[in-house]
Design a protein around this nucleic acid. Sequence first.
DNA 1: CTGAAAGCGCTTACAG
DNA 2: CTGAAAGCGCTTACAG
Lengths: 340, 340
Amino acid sequence: MTTIKDIARISGYSIGTVSRVINNRADVSEEAREKISKIIRERGYQPNSIARKLKQSVSSEVSIIVRGSKNVFFESILEEIQIKMREYDENISVQFIGETDNEVETAARIITYLKPKGIIFLGGYIDASRHDFSQIHLPCVLVTNDARDFGFDNLSSFTTDYFDAGKYVVDRLLSEGHTRIGILGGYPEGPGREYKNGKILGAVEALRENGILFDFDRDYEPCSYSAESGYKALEILFRRSPDLTAVFALSDSIAFGTIRALKDIGLRVPEDVSVIGFDGLTYANYSIPRLSTIRQDTAGLAKKSVDDLLMRLSYGGEAVHELVPYEYIEGESVAVNRKS
Amino acid sequence: MTTIKDIARISGYSIGTVSRVINNRADVSEEAREKISKIIRERGYQPNSIARKLKQSVSSEVSIIVRGSKNVFFESILEEIQIKMREYDENISVQFIGETDNEVETAARIITYLKPKGIIFLGGYIDASRHDFSQIHLPCVLVTNDARDFGFDNLSSFTTDYFDAGKYVVDRLLSEGHTRIGILGGYPEGPGREYKNGKILGAVEALRENGILFDFDRDYEPCSYSAESGYKALEILFRRSPDLTAVFALSDSIAFGTIRALKDIGLRVPEDVSVIGFDGLTYANYSIPRLSTIRQDTAGLAKKSVDDLLMRLSYGGEAVHELVPYEYIEGESVAVNRKS
DNA sequence: CTGAAAGCGCTTACAG
DNA sequence: CTGAAAGCGCTTACAG
């Protein structure tokens, strides 16, 4: 293994000077820089990143903490982030945590362990651990949640406007004549069994504006973000509310399970029941029927998050909070309500 | 930050003894071990892994190199590997590389950079870079390819028997009376435009045993492992061979694209055309129609790979090569051929 | 069983 | 602009 000592010996300079060349410091003579660079190139010398990390209190990596490893939507954002980071030649390390794990605690552990220079949270909440987060002073980005109101100047956030999108979905269903609309996905949060999910709140608001009071006990069924749970949740929902003519599934995977369950019950989509999903997974465009859904801009979310983090890392600047536009994709899973 | 020095100072022992306790060495008195352990627990002290890595020529991490970041099947194996590794309290670092990147080169880079104690290759070929691999002396595992014939005593491999499974698929279609069977997916490899893919070779063999010579030019269409390319490939295939009554899609994602394309052409699955996929993704059980497919044992592949690597890491031993059983899942996408 | 000391490969004030 | 030296937090022969 070639080390900095070898380069120093061969070049005739000290390891201090070699180190300065490696780190592109200004205070090196052109002569030394060229000579040393040449030798580094020839030998294919790569500085030992572990030794560097030990000295530098911070490494050159960005850590990405992903909440929930089975979430197809997060996987696609993660993929985009990876691509972007590779373009910029930045190193990343990915950490998956469980749905119920505390991402801020994880961040604290990672900071001592990996010493990242910045952190991207993919799908955390943060506000549940505000106190702990205030101990973290690295530039961070929260993706798929709005951190505007948390008041941390080192935490940017980029997210779809879930409230607005949820409202759009229900407005769309209302405009097709549906009034008996069910909602599938997510969980009531906190001790008060509150519904904090923006998609749900937006959906409820759309109904309210049309004089319909959403009955959670009857027309809502919680479930996690997978086809399996979507399937089961639909069965429960329709046993309770067989008169529903439309379903808003909080993710495409839930929607796929929903559509399959409806078929197995003997109901046709969209003739008997309309279904709208959320996320805009590639597969939504290949399912039978094609799924009508809200497409989140995964590429945009990823790009903005990465760009913001790297810019703040290099030049400082304030944290920003941005709502990234979504798009409604017209599929084949929505039809006019013929029941009423 | 608590360091080993603090623990030493508080406990009254030297940092050497503290280090021995941390590393569970035998040559420490019970008294010292207890006293020091207690303090470590109280303080929530975590040894700095970077400093450890610097001394130990090897870190405590296992690196996982994943080929192709858009591969849903690999993602599900990766997830299982992560779960297993976490159970065993082993740290991992994941590196995604492009479809066409050289995984052995990547491994060499990672070894100097991260100093992993072992490597798991998810979906590489290795044999294309045999020479370079012979420079790698860490325990390694290749998943989803058979390395038996490569002759490296540090490389185990676990894979589905693709030849056998491919043969099974076509036998299944033949038994339903299909003789005009198309194949979708993969690429001819190497300069000689050879078909090295085990699934394809098995399929061709099944046909041959039944007196049918597979016509690659007419009844095969290469494509990558996604719904999009499956959709396009099916269109091309059927423009050329509209008399096919069955399609073997080399992955479930290809199959989903295939089924959708057939529907858009105006053909029904399975009434007009039977389709069998490969992988056994969860979603295959929720699509319309439910997809008949070969389920690869992702959990088994992951568990065996992890167990083998950790065992060889701890106790040495020879590399092993194992074919992990697959299972045919009967869906709704295969029917008797009524054309002949 | 324990401590003192060398050293892993690098970075960075400090002098000059 | 450059070198000598301290030190990052740990591990591990070496003595005793």
